[in-house]
Design a protein around this nucleic acid. Sequence first.
DNA 1: GCATAATATTCAAAAAATCGAATATGTGAA
DNA 2: TTCACATATTCGATTTTTTGAATATTATGC
Lengths: 137, 137
Amino acid sequence: MADSRQQKATAELLKAFSHPTRLSILQTLAAGPRCVTDMEEILPARQANISQHLAVLRNARLVDYAQDGVLKCYYLCRPMLVKDLLTLMGRDEPMLIRTAAEIKAAKERLAEMNESTRSRGASASAINGVKRKSRGR
Amino acid sequence: MADSRQQKATAELLKAFSHPTRLSILQTLAAGPRCVTDMEEILPARQANISQHLAVLRNARLVDYAQDGVLKCYYLCRPMLVKDLLTLMGRDEPMLIRTAAEIKAAKERLAEMNESTRSRGASASAINGVKRKSRGR
DNA sequence: GCATAATATTCAAAAAATCGAATATGTGAA
DNA sequence: TTCACATATTCGATTTTTTGAATATTATGC
């Protein structure tokens, strides 16, 4: 049903990932917990900025911290999610190029599936693309 | 060496994913190719807007199209990437909560590993958190 | 050629993200 | 308490994103 709420939540979560500095932070934390000072030494960003990015990651519930004296030790709240996502993005997939003919065939297969699944024929023709507004293809 | 170029590229790619409408488009395309008119019927957005989002996805090389008469049939350039990412984001992982003690132990293990890996002891104490100084601007 | 459907692009305004600078808060040691 | 360090927050300026409206482009049938 492609829930619109879900899409919004997912988009927000992905946005938290979508910054080079935040990716670096996550990658660092994937190796183990770190306090902010540690990260300052590793990342090419100033303290305030790192703190700001950490706030974004906290809001997204990707990281949390435990206080250790004067230090705040950050760690990944969902290490599997983060690690798997980083791995995924590191992978490279050969770029696909499809022909119009291939696509036509695929669309027809898809349309048939939809046809048999739902008995409503109303929008099926539109999805199928058989005939739209008196103009074919 | 967490390559900064790579982080930037990854962040940009993730940004392309990070919008509810674009996620919906990708999810739709994950089921099979679609032309823009098809998507207009499915998505709660106007033609121009969908076209704009498709342009973003094209720039990110996540989708491409094949012309079929007057129609442009869009498809996923890297279906595995998209599908795996969508699956990953659908998964839910129990939120982790760590104590300061746990983290301290983890940090020490990590510091030891770094110690043995690189023979330079200089920044090891910083990583360990023994004694820190230096304020910068 | 012309009309039309499908799709893209341009433009401007509004909203959101980013960043540095300054400042504030919290914590342990002396 | 007071100090120093670690970290967070606020603020303002700049940049980027997002969107609707209007307009442009392209392919097809006539």
